[in-house]
Design a protein around this nucleic acid. Structure first.
Lengths: 145, 145
DNA sequence: CCTAACTGTACGAATTATTATTACAGTACT
DNA sequence: AGTACTGTAATAATAATTCGTACAGTTAGG
């Protein structure tokens, strides 16, 4: 899975952190540690899905256009990256006489699709505000050392 | 996520499909559609975890060493690939003064780790036999066209 | 005891996915 | 008109994944 989902969540949390303020792609990029063009691309998708509002021209940038308590990571994930659990490589060969080889691809596909649903279900429990709160608490409970 | 998990599941289902028979890495590789060396590497891990037995020399190969009704995909996943949900790229910079930038990495880490637990929980419901059954039914219900 | 058919493992090449960089057109404020 | 932005595309750089080959070690059979 690529990092666009992570970047989207980070950006939205950042915007929620500084409400009422426009943030430029450059500012967000610095915070996220990537380049402005990538941010603009991702924010463009988020705008099309109504999560942020955009302003072009001088003093422009991005601002949150949703309630951080309402929007869950599941919605973000859906709009940014779908079907990311499944690896790109495929097992088996549909042309093969052997049923195992011929059908494994479909079976694994089914399994990964359902797994993705479980993943999404989990993400539904987490809102942008949840992330922001954790970040503000300094993420005491886990992997950060 | 790479495809080693998929290949492991495929290989084990294949071995369950032809019990009592030794299958060479070449035969499995053909069925899976990859090269024998990759199969041997993966099977070597599966052997160390007790899922298969190995025989070197003439007439050797691999044979299932577990009950396909007992072994779940979760156990296979655990032995083959851990922490695969999380992307390699990391958001933010721990050195930054801004809390969002500094702590986002830890927070996302936590989220992906927990998501992985949900994923594993789902995989616990599926056994090698489940996969084999689906494959034998020709995977009627889903994405295969 | 020699050969043939295997596994175990390592390493470098090829391929593919991801990320970064650059460029430029369009928009809005001053 | 000029400056500071976004939107978008195309290409380059980097990193991950997969493949291919090689070779040492093992076992069975003659």
């Amino acid at each position: 899975m690529n990092s666009e989902f992570t970047i989207a969540v980070h950006s939205l949390a950042l915007l929620a952190h500084i409400p009422e303020h426009m943030a430029s792609s450059e500012l967000i990029a610095k915070n996220v540690c990537t380049n402005p063009a990538r941010i603009r691309k991702i924010m463009s998708i988020l705008r099309k899905n109504g999560f942020v509002k955009t302003k072009e021209g001088i003093g422009g940038g991005y601002i949150l256009a949703c309630d951080p308590n309402e929007v869950t990571l599941a919605e973000i994930h859906r709009s940014i990256s779908n079907g990311t659990l499944k690896p790109h490589w495929c097992s088996g060969d549909p042309q093969e006489a052997c049923q195992v080889s011929a059908n494994m691809h479909g079976v694994m596909d089914q399994i990964f699709t359902e797994a993705e649903m479980y993943f999404t279900k989990y993400l539904e429990q987490i809102t942008i505000q949840t992330v922001l709160d954790k970040v503000r608490q300094g993420c005491q409970e886990s992997s950060q050392q």
